[in-house]
């Protein structure tokens, strides 16, 4: 049996996920931009208050998860386009995944204890 260790055979779901996460991140960006216009970044205290707000923290959590999923699909696509040998490719995929999961934990931990 032919086994694919790497490849885009799970493509449609990931393509859709990349779109959904992109839309969410775009909306989040606009919300944060509006908050900044409203003075949310005018001082450390104001910035802290914004990010500690329950609803914003909920959105930021979703943003972090979206970003990491989005970047996973995107960076994996880039490796698949330029790196052919399966062993190197799978190594790069794993490193990318580890990096992103770690970043997600780090970033969530920053906002979660505010």
């Amino acid at each position: 049996m032919k086994r694919l260790v790497v490849g885009a055979h799970y493509g449609l779901m990931d393509w859709l996920a990349q779109r959904v996460t992109a839309i969410f991140m775009a909306v989040y960006t606009l919300i944060m931009f509006a908050a900044t216009l409203g003075g949310a970044a005018s001082s450390r205290e104001a910035w802290h208050a914004l990010m500690a707000n329950g609803f914003i923290r909920y959105l930021t959590f979703l943003f972090i998860i979206s970003l990491c999923y989005h970047a996973w699909v995107g960076v994996r696509d880039i490796w698949m386009d330029y790196v052919q040998p399966a062993a190197i490719r799978v190594t790069l995929h794993v490193l990318t995944l580890f990096a992103l999961v770690g970043y997600a934990g780090w970033a969530v931990q920053i906002i979660w204890r505010l």
Binding site: R44, W47, H48, M51, Y103, W106, A107, I110, I111, L114
Partner: peptide, 8 residues
């Protein structure tokens, strides 16, 4: 992320 951490 590091800058986010320092900023908060």
């Amino acid at each position: 992320i590091w800058l986010l951490q320092l900023s908060l």
